[in-house]
Design a protein around this nucleic acid. Structure first.
Lengths: 127, 127
DNA sequence: CCGTATCCAAGCGGATACTG
DNA sequence: CAGTATCCGCTTGGATACGG
């Protein structure tokens, strides 16, 4: 997956394989429905946990925390806790997160642009 | 999900909801690891079933057929069967598929660009 | 070679309850 | 309000076998 991108760089074989497996790992983390929807929502503005759960419709409490931890772990979102009572926790995109968001935007745009194509393709396929 | 994109169009409420749920469905289909990796590989060139299974490393026979059917169903890949013996089946991206591929490319580029950021973010998080 | 079907284990993901 | 933990159904996905 990574090979062509680093072709001609000064990395040796072992480093290439390390980078490759890391890239696969990150891609697998990020290329899933919930993660991408969360990133899309956070692109608009900073959101609290409960706001996210409302905005990303259909997501469960558990999936939301799980994906937020993962995104935080990879440094795509930043988590800030306000020590009030009741607690207030806000999530916002980091710079890498915002960069990824641009590609998610493109994917959403694609979805809407080809809605018609896809619907007719489905009918053709089913018939 | 769709609302903002169609704002101001002449669609009525019911159509908006239909388009919205369709968009969600498509997004869920497409926003998964295997589908995106397959599309990425097919971007390079037309590939046979067995070639795909080799190129997309780690994918099982079952997942490959399942995702290929789904992509065909949505009109993103075209399947051509050569009635030879043994059979030869080739998969190629359609125009919508190629358009999507551009965004997948962007995601891959993002992955490699931020590899370093992410690795250090992980260490910070784990420590 | 390509595709479908079946079986079965593993892990996802929802519901719920409980802590700070 | 936000997060963690537990339980458990059930889907996912791998292995295998067989058909075109």
């Amino acid at each position: 997956m990574v090979t062509k991108q680093f072709k001609g760089s000064s990395l040796d074989e072992a480093d290439l394989r390390r980078a490759d497996s890391l890239a696969r790992e990150i891609f697998s983390d990020v290329a899933n429905k919930w993660a991408l929807l969360i990133i899309e929502m956070l692109g608009e503005r900073t959101l609290r946990f409960s706001e996210l759960r409302d905005e990303v419709e259909g997501i469960s409490h558990k999936m939301l925390t799980q994906n937020l931890r993962m995104l935080e772990h990879n440094g795509l979102v930043e988590r800030t806790v306000y020590p009030t009572v009741p607690p207030r926790v806000e999530y916002t995109l980091t710079e890498p997160g915002r960069a990824l968001r641009a590609t998610v935007d493109a994917m959403c745009a694609w979805t809407h642009q080809y809605l018609g194509h896809i619907e007719t393709a489905r009918h053709r396929f089913d018939g």
